[in-house]
Design a protein around this nucleic acid. Structure first.
Length: 895
RNA sequence: GCUCGGAUGGUGGAAUUGGUAGACACGUUGGACUUAAAAUCCAAUGACCAUUGCGGUCGUGCGGGUUCAAGUCCCGCUCCGAGUACCA
């Protein structure tokens, strides 16, 4: 029998599906283990070899855990709301639902070919109304909750204490001001010509990326999530998570907690509040700067400066965020004509406005300390403002941002600046000029999108009065529309369907909210729905949540370091506060798989000509790189010009300058259709099989690391599987016998079991493959035939190459799947070698025992010690460490 | 700019965390079996020197340091990758 991977893989994939081998049991005596992959967006281009890496890693882990006696939940679904399907719909008029469903079928087919052990009975799609019904339900929970800062948790809105003496309208707006999901008017990038709101990335130099139309900042009503109330908890709870440090760090920076003080500077009878983390430098505050959006600007600007201030404000309002950032090295600003009083030095200091101060952070105003802050320093030198050093930073002229003792601070001179921080704030607090204050970079989460292909928001309006839909009204299904473009007024395409917008309840007419939720909404809680996907009464049964949560292992790309992973933590904490889930955090351990990169190929066109030159012949010519499809290039970087011309007719008329062959240049880039560097896993499965592909992907390197794809090494892994197969079938003959294994075979096997188990636990899958290769090579050399060796070998191979392992398992006479066979135990007695204590004397001086695991006699030991020059040197000198080397083994010395 | 992470043969990567650097695999070269090819197997493969044999010198981005011993620890650089963008 040959290793016929095509039939073997088909056979076992069907077996697993038919027998529901990977069905996770909700009632099990076994300990649970929840392994989750970040579910994919089903894009139109299908999977490339980079996508499955994380799925393969989680699959290996799931299969391993099952064989370790765990009840494993390993589900998969699709994040099926999203922009690409909608853009495709805009271009073609096809309903996004249709293209999304087609893509899901294709994805499912590709995933199935890899032999992944998902429990497909639990499949979910975020665009199914049976799913987004509950996304809408959670939205309403957020709408109907507020954050109680005394209890430090979210509470139902009914528990909110409403101040007395409010009229009905005021009560309404008070409640609205506390809701976790609320409506606010926020500046957005508005493009009149395109009739839509654009993301910052879509605006370049004040013009729209597509079309080049002007874009302005415009306030628009948006739904917003009050994630900032959770800033402290999102930050504090990070420490207990078993996540990569880099991800925790990005979340920490994103939340950006900084502690400082809010200080009041008075201008006649008014106050300007500034936020600072460096109140210790207040004696050096020689001017104030307000953000151009600051509401007090009009009041404090003197007539003389009014014109220039107005111009400046007007100018900055036209700038996009990107343009404002471009000024980083060339700051601009205008004087208001007013002076404020420094509350501690009582000096009059000028008040300026500048766009280097952000209105959205802190109070939108700063006290500038040019001697100890680089941005202030730059500004002060440009506009010739006073610079006073207040912290002793040695002789350096430049601005000093470190710590030291105070100077030029009158009675406070000589005090350590860190101590002075609290001294000055306390002093100013007594005269009501300062308060301690903590600020966050984290902003509330703008939740609405003017798009079609997303969850409708279950809110209706009667005038300005909001009303939440009732539970029985959910799901609020997406209506049909004539066009998927936003309307001229910047409303979502949903606004095009008048029948849908207008709704009458008990004789009262309402208008529906027409915006939809962002793609993050569906992925915020999908891991909870996997627990109980068919439940029509709750988003998931509470007991089942208690059993399965938290997710023990979450695998996905690092690109979600902040957005998805922060939003889902936020929602989870709200659900926890409201007692719907049992854990404070959703994901216990997180692993980021590295990206698999493509190896792009380029042809070089000599500039301003139609001549393409072979890469090896380029000397001084200036050339332009053009991507060509990597399937036309061989391993030696030679281009098949004929095939290129067949597929890309635009190359028909060009002149190829070449020697013997035409060479391309190569570059490592992200794998993408537009770069023509995509390697399709289907083709590799067809040629080598899924088991080979799986093992090769993890053999490429550590899971966490980014690495380029190179198919040429795949034969090594494929040969390994063939070699493994030959241990069982050689020349059509079944090789396994009941013979007792040799000592060497047992030692090798148990060494390998130990290595595999510990390496899987520590996610070092690539070294597992090496260990298996060594084991199979040596067993081949030993001509091993013993069932007692080959049967456990098959079990430890199973997580990596499950199809071939199942097939062999069956050949070994087992009737059941290998999946739930207990993972082989390590028998340490095969590994531990005998140790003896030997007394050793050296130069008649040193005397100690060594504990040895080598079969040497005393004279050999002495010879070994003397023969090793390093040990000799060590022995002649002092004795700082407690071991020596004998025959390459480190031996502990027992005194 | 700031914050992380990294740099090991022709290539992907190992190295029990301070103890024979280069495991395992690809590639390359030579050989066996074949009419031939494929498949399979064997040998060599960091560089340089010596080669009849033994062997020797250098070697983990660069420059220093600690140590009997450094890819690994410390100090100073260079380059590459990722994230972030004036957050007071």
């Amino acid at each position: 029998m040959k290793y016929d991977f095509r039939n073997i893989e088909k056979k076992w994939q069907k077996y697993w599906l038919d027998n529901k081998t990977f069905k996770a049991d909700n009632n099990s005596g076994k300990p649970k283990y929840y392994v989750l992959d970040m579910f994919p967006y089903p894009s139109g281009s299908g999977l490339h070899v980079g996508h499955p890496l994380g799925y393969i890693a989680s699959d290996i882990f799931s299969r391993y855990k099952r064989s370790k006696g765990f009840n494993v939940l390993h589900p998969m679904g699709f994040d099926s709301f999203g922009l690409p399907a909608e853009q495709y719909a805009v271009r073609t008029g096809q309903h996004p639902k249709k293209t999304t469903e087609e893509n899901i079928v294709r994805f499912r087919d590709q995933l199935d070919k890899l032999g992944l052990s998902f429990d497909w009975d639990r499949e979910i799609k975020t665009s199914d109304s049976s799913y987004y019904r509950w996304t809408q339900w959670i939205f309403l929970k957020l709408f109907n909750s507020y954050y109680d800062h005394d209890l430090n948790k979210a509470q139902p809105i009914e528990k909110l204490k409403i101040p007395k003496n409010l009229n009905e309208k005021e009560i309404g707006s008070f409640i609205d001001s506390k809701r976790l999901a609320y409506v606010d008017t926020i500046d957005v990038n508005w493009c009149e010509e395109l009739g839509t709101v654009l993301a910052n990335e879509e605006v370049i130099g004040g013009l729209s990326e597509r079309g080049g139309f002007p874009v302005i900042k415009r306030p628009m009503k948006q739904w917003v999530m009050r994630i900032t109330d959770y800033a402290d908890r999102l930050l504090d709870d990070l420490f207990e998570l078993d996540w990569p440090e880099s991800i925790k760090l990005s979340q920490k920076n994103w939340i950006g907690k900084s502690e400082g003080a809010e200080i009041k500077f008075s201008i006649e009878k008014k106050f300007i509040k500034v936020f600072t983390t460096r109140p210790d430098t207040i004696f050096g505050a020689t001017y104030l700067v307000l953000a151009p959006e600051h509401p007090l600007i009009n009041e404090i600007t003197t007539d003389k400066y009014k014109k220039s201030i107005d111009e400046y404000v007007e100018q900055t309002s036209k700038k996009s965020d990107l343009e404002r950032q471009e000024n980083e090295k060339n700051k601009t600003g205008v004087f208001t004509g007013s002076f404020a009083l420094n509350p501690i030095s009582n000096e009059k200091i000028p008040v300026w406005i500048s766009d280097y101060v952000l209105f959205s952070y802190g109070t939108g105003a700063i006290m500038a300390v040019p001697a100890h802050d680089e941005r202030d320093n730059e500004f002060a030198r440009k506009f010739n403002l006073k610079i006073i050093k207040v912290i002793d930073g040695g002789n350096k002229d430049e601005c000093y941002t470190g710590n030291g003792s105070l100077i030029n601070c009158g009675e406070y001179d000589g005090i350590d600046n860190i101590k002075f921080k609290s001294i000055v704030v306390e002093k100013l607090e007594t005269i009501n000029k300062a308060t301690k204050r903590t600020n966050y970079k984290l902003r509330d989460w703008i939740f609405t999108r003017q798009r079609y292909w997303g969850e409708p928001i279950p809110i209706i309006y009667n005038g300005n009065k909001k009303k939440a839909l009732e539970f029985n009204d959910l799901p609020l299904e997406l209506p049909e529309v004539e066009s998927y473009l936003p309307t001229k007024d910047g409303l979502s395409p949903l606004a095009r369907n008048n029948d849908w917008i207008n709704i009458s309840i008990n004789g009262v007419n309402y208008l529906r909210e027409t915006n939809t939720m962002p793609q993050w909404a569906g992925s915020c809680w999908y891991f909870l729905r996997f627990i109980d996907p068919g439940n029509n009464n709750e988003f998931a049964n509470k007991d089942l949540i208690k059993y399965w949560m938290p997710v023990d292992l979450y695998i996905g790309g690092a690109e979600h370091a902040v957005l998805h992973l922060l939003y889902s933590r936020f929602w989870h904490k709200v659900l926890f506060d409201l007692d719907y889930v049992s854990t404070n955090e959703p994901f216990k351990k997180l692993v980021n798989q590295g990206m698999i990169l493509g190896n792009s190929a380029f042809v070089h066109r000599i500039k301003n000509t139609n001549d393409f030159i072979s890469f090896d012949m380029i000397k001084d010519e200036k050339t332009q790189k053009i991507h060509v499809d990597i399937s036309f290039v061989d391993e030696k970087n030679r281009l098949n010009i004929e095939r290129l011309k067949q597929n890309n007719p635009e190359f028909n008329d060009v002149n190829f300058i070449k020697g013997k062959s035409f060479y391309v240049s190569r570059d490592i880039e992200k794998m993408s259709k537009s770069k023509f560097n995509v390697v399709n896993p289907d083709a590799i499965c067809e040629q080598y099989g899924a088991d080979t592909l799986r093992m090769y992907e993890i053999f490429l390197g550590p899971v966490e690391q980014a690495k380029p794809w190179n198919t040429s090494g795949i034969s090594g892994v494929h040969n390994f599987l063939k070699k493994y197969w030959r241990l069982f079938y050689r020349n059509d003959k079944w090789m396994v016998t009941e013979i007792e294994p040799s000592k060497n075979e047992l030692k090798l096997l148990h060494k390998t079991i130990k290595k595999i188990a510990s390496d899987i636990e520590s996610f070092s899958f690539n070294t597992c493959v090496s260990a298996l290769m060594i084991c199979v090579n040596e067993l081949t050399n030993l001509n091993c035939k013993s069932r007692k060796i080959l049967s456990p070998l098959t079990q430890i191979l199973y997580p990596f190459a499950p199809h071939v392992a199942e097939e062999i398992w069956e050949s070994l006479g087992h009737k059941n799947t290998i999946t739930y066979e207990p993972f082989p135990q390590v028998n340490e007695s095969y590994l531990i070698e005998e140790t003896k204590n030997y007394p050793v004397s050296f130069n008649g001086k040193l005397r100690f025992n060594i504990s040895l695991s080598l079969n040497l006699d005393d004279s050999e030991i002495k010879e070994a010690i003397l023969g090793d020059t390093r040990t000799e040197r060590y022995l002649k000198g002092s004795l700082p460490k407690r071991w020596v080397i004998i025959q390459n083994k480190i031996i502990n010395i027992v005194h």
